[in-house]
Design a protein around this nucleic acid. Structure first.
Length: 948
DNA sequence: ATCTCCCGCCACGCT
DNA sequence: AGCGTGGCGGGAGAT
């Protein structure tokens, strides 16, 4: 029994202490409660530096933990721990063990330290059986607590936030395997990101708001809410009737269900790393975790039962109820995830009592006021899929609308394919790379394999040629879109956003608006906001975002994650980028929920109290103000946080050596066919032809410009239009990546879309080139934060002033501008390129921001979203333009005060505790919400918090 | 009996 | 061959 393990010594050690059954028990028992005393012995090098570990001072930690834990449910043993007691019997055991080796000793000490602090919850356990305790002590949740205790919620970027798996494992005395579980979940929330083998970077909760917003958006896109209801309904029916009808399944139309599986939502700052997900695809824990969180964010009563979650995650719809084994496995995993989430205080265990009986469920206790995606940052959430994972693709295709034809024939330019492959390779390398050098800011810039560069260059050329053609085409798609519209509406229902279709009539042209909100600066001013209508820009619009931390701007690809046949969704050109954005308003509403979130309609409404709300407001405002034109912002003007500038400069210097190598990331190259489908696209569809035409014109112009730019030295990025036909199906490309791109790069994109064809299906693929191979180091200049503010056309143009068109139609331009702008966020108008200038005084950033703010600020992000028909109203609807909104947030440095901020952050979120009760009540309501498709007769659910 | 979920085997992909 | 990862499910503790 013991362990034949392969594992390394560590494990063994571990096992020694923990695993061995018998011995363990004893030990554990002793430990059980405790172990804490010493605590601090080991400080991680990393963690230590930055933050005072919580662990070290248990007090803080404990408090936090307790608070956390308490609610959480997990019964941790905690009291004792709380006590932080020094030695427990277990400790003795450990001692003995440790005696054997010093290392062990150390580990033990460490273990003791942290863990306990938090837990302390259950007196009972602790006392009782050690064994029990032991088991509990070993729980993932506790382990996660310990882990979390070591790092500040809001790490100081300046410090080293690297996490070494080995170190952690040894310090916490756990097997690596367990650490992986935790890291995967944390990574899914972007609390950490993988740098390289054995190395992760700690981001803390800084990205959380963005991540949650993104997840919510994606969840809405996938209509998880509906799915949940369906499942519930179904189950009820079955129970009651015995018949489960499955019709519901079908309802979803899109068959979205299946699709979801593989994507992983990334955040701007974190993307790569995340991307690193290597081999295992994104199948698992990471994705599962995200989906799980999405369910909470989307469901009205923020309660999700394990059963429902498991079903959705399995995608069972397709197959009615799959094996039980599968279900069981899923449930196991969910528990693993839930334990980590509990440690994060994001969820709490509760029980839902239905007619049948009581079922385990979890309630969301995280922040309630999740900023809209847009605002938050646009994180472009991107779901990325690995190209490889065809399976996912297949699923998508299946699920996707029936999009008939196109199954996956994904036509891509050969060169693109190559690129994709190469990219993948790169990723792998990155991932696997034993030591990934890159880290923090600088990391954003990656070295790009020369190969990639070459390919890229080739592709560009080819694409460019094509692109020209494409441009012309663009209009068509738009048309198609319009046509589609009607249908969309129906489908729209499906979409989360859809519900409000009436509001936005697809027919209306929406103005796309770009909002830039420089978080850092806070300037409420609209300065940041920019809107432009990209007419039919290629579906994919790469957006460049400057990030502070990341240093580089990111290009965001929207993945259309789902293929949901959204009525709306059409393959519009712009759609891609947009997609994520689209929902924002919609997002608010969960499918069923009309009731749920106020947002949807109200979304725009200002969030009252929550800081997030403020953010939103700010972002919104700007957007409104600067309508379309803003986009044209001077390239020169950019604001970036000073830091960014600096970073950039540094990078530039560094890079200048090799242009090619510089390529921000291989990923930039990715093309996702999927994007096409994105719901956003549907929105895009709405855009009027006229606009399109205009846009086209603009685009052409822009292209020229772009070229010039490129000539200038910048490599323009282009979007290559793919053949439309295939679009639908192909989901090959991992969507949703954010790619850091050198700012300089421009995009010229083109659309090819044929388009007219089917609405949703219309497949236009756009491919973007990443900035060609040699992305250059962006000139620092651009970044200067300050400059932008002025430039922005404060345009008064209200969002959608119908009349206005965007001057800068072409996506390329947008990108370009975005880059600049995004960076720009700073109110300061100084365009100064010089980095130095960049650091504008303006940024209040220095000022301690409220924690939440800090979060937002973090990265400047740009979202491009097509407005969903509904919500978008205010925002955009330009006459013809598609509604796009870009939001850029700058990152300011994350607020340093980690500790404080932390608290605030979580606290801010509405106190959920009461939620449970609320939930129950609300619960009933929610059900109905799903109006359209499903109504689920819901039974009331009672939620009981479990606490022990 | 059911809920939880720890443990670690073992596969996968990279070095 | 070895290593880092992490999917997966047996089986046992907790309820």
């Amino acid at each position: 029994m013991l362990t034949p393990n392969k594992y390394n010594a560590v494990k063994k050690r571990w096992k020694m202490s923990s695993t061995l059954p018998e011995s363990q028990n004893l030990r554990h028992k002793t430990q059980t409660t405790t172990s804490n005393h010493k605590g601090n012995v080991f400080a991680e090098p990393q963690a230590l530096t930055t933050t005072p570990r919580k662990a070290s001072t248990q007090g803080t930690v404990l408090t936090e933990i307790q608070s956390n834990m308490g609610p959480l449910t997990t019964p941790t043993k905690g009291k004792e721990t709380g006590a932080g007691e020094p030695w427990t019997p277990t400790s003795n055991l450990k001692m003995l063990i440790s005696a054997a080796s010093p290392e062990i000793r150390n580990r033990e000490k460490e273990l003791c330290m942290d863990p306990e602090g938090g837990d302390a919850m259950d007196p009972e356990l602790g006392e009782e059986g050690e064994k029990q305790i032991s088991r509990k002590e070993k729980s993932l949740g506790l382990l996660c607590h310990k882990f979390l205790a070591r790092y500040p919620d809001y790490p100081n970027p300046a410090l080293n936030n690297d996490i070494s798996l080995d170190d952690v494992a040894s310090e916490l005395n756990v097997e690596r395997r367990r650490i992986y579980d935790i890291m995967n979940v944390l990574e899914s929330l972007h609390i950490v990101s993988r740098l390289a083998k054995n190395r992760y970077t700690w981001h803390g909760r800084a990205n959380l708001p963005q991540t949650l917003a993104k997840l919510r958006q994606v969840g809405e896109e996938h209509r998880y809410g509906q799915q949940m209801q369906q499942i519930r309904q179904r189950s009820l029916e079955k129970e009651l009737d015995s018949d489960g009808e499955e019709k519901e399944n079908g309802e979803v139309e899109g068959g979205e269900q299946g699709q979801k599986e593989m994507f992983f939502v990334e955040l701007p700052g974190v993307e790569f790393k995340a991307a690193s997900v290597n081999s295992r695809k994104d199948k698992s824990l990471r994705v599962m975790s995200q989906k799980f969180v999405m369910l909470f964010l989307v469901s009205t009563p923020r309660v999700v039962s394990l059963e429902v979650a498991a079903r959705i995650l399995i995608g069972e719809d397709q197959v009615a109820d799959q094996d039980k084994s599968k279900f069981k496995t899923k449930v196991r995993r969910l528990y693993d995830i839930a334990n980590v989430l509990r440690s994060l205080k994001l969820i709490e265990k509760v029980h839902v009592t239905e007619e049948r009986g009581r079922k385990p469920a979890f309630e969301w206790t995280g922040p309630e006021d999740i900023p809209n995606v847009k605002e938050t940052t646009a994180t472009t959430a991107t779901a990325k899929r690995t190209l490889e994972s065809r399976a996912s693709v297949d699923n998508c295709a299946k699920n996707l609308f029936s999009s008939p034809g196109s199954k996956r024939s994904f036509t891509r330019h050969p060169s693109l394919i190559k690129l994709a492959k190469s990219i993948q390779e790169d990723r792998r390398k990155i991932n696997s790379a034993p030591t990934s050098p890159v880290k923090n800011d600088s990391s954003s810039i990656e070295f790009f394999p020369t190969k990639m560069a070459q390919l890229a260059a080739i592709c560009k050329i080819q694409l460019d040629q094509q692109s020209n053609k494409v441009v012309d085409r663009t209009p068509k798609p738009a048309v198609a879109v319009t046509e589609a519209v009607p249908d969309h509406q129906q489908k729209a229902a499906e979409n989360p956003g859809a519900p409000q279709p009436p509001v936005l009539t697809p027919t209306e042209p929406r103005a796309s608006t770009v909002h830039l909100t420089p978080r850092a600066q806070f300037t409420p001013q609209p300065t940041g906001a920019m809107s432009f209508h990209p007419a039919q820009c290629s579906p994919l619009i790469p957006v460049l975002l400057p990030q502070l931390q990341g240093g580089g701007p990111y290009a965001i690809y929207m993945h259309h994650s789902s293929f949901r046949p959204h009525p709306l969704t059409r393959p519009q050109p712009t759609s891609l980028a947009v997609r994520s954005m689209t929902f924002e308003d919609k997002t608010g509403r969960s499918p069923s929920d009309v009731t749920v979130h106020g947002h949807s309609p109200a979304t725009n409404k200002l969030p009252t109290s929550s800081p997030s709300a403020l953010k939103r407001v700010c972002s919104e405002i700007p957007s409104r103000e600067s309508p379309s034109k803003a986009k044209r912002i001077d390239p020169s003007t950019r604001d970036t946080s000073p830091k960014l500038c600096e970073i950039l400069q540094a990078r530039l210097k560094a890079r200048r050596g090799g242009l090619l190598s510089n390529r921000p990331s291989p990923r930039a190259l990715h093309l996702d066919p999927e994007f096409v489908n994105t719901p956003g696209s549907s929105v895009a569809a709405a855009a009027n032809q006229t606009l399109e035409q205009n846009l086209e014109t603009l685009l052409e112009k822009e292209e020229k410009v772009a070229t010039s730019d490129s000539e200038a030295g910048l490599t323009p990025v282009r979007a290559v239009p793919l053949t439309p036909q295939h679009l639908n199906t192909e989901t090959l490309i991992p969507t949703g990546y954010l790619i850091p791109i050198s700012q300089q790069s421009l995009f010229s994109y083109k659309d090819l879309h044929s388009t007219e064809s089917s609405k949703a299906s219309t497949p236009t693929y756009n491919i973007y080139h990443t900035p060609t191979a040699g992305s250059r180091p962006p000139p620092i200049q651009e970044f200067t934060p300050t400059s932008l503010s002025l430039h922005r056309p404060p345009p008064a143009s209200p969002f959608s002033a119908p009349g206005h068109r965007f001057h800068s139609p072409s996506p390329a331009i947008l990108n370009f501008t975005l880059q600049n702008l995004g960076l720009i966020p700073g109110p300061g108008s100084v365009p100064a390129c010089s980095p130095g200038t960049a650091q504008t005084p303006e940024h209040p950033s220095s000022v301690p921001l409220p924690p939440h703010l800090g979060l937002h600020q973090k990265g400047s992000m740009v979202f491009v979203k097509p407005m969903s028909p509904v919500p978008g109203q205010h925002q955009m609807t330009g006459p013809g333009g598609q509604p796009l909104t870009l939001i850029s947030l700058q990152q300011v440095t994350t607020p340093k005060g980690t500790a404080l901020t932390q608290h605030s952050f979580f606290h801010t979120p509405v106190s959920l505790s009461p939620l449970a009760t609320v939930v129950t009540t609300s619960h009933g309501h929610t059900a109905p919400a799903g109006a359209k498709t499903v109504y689920i007769p819901q039974r009331k659910l009672e939620v009981t918090t479990e606490d022990t």
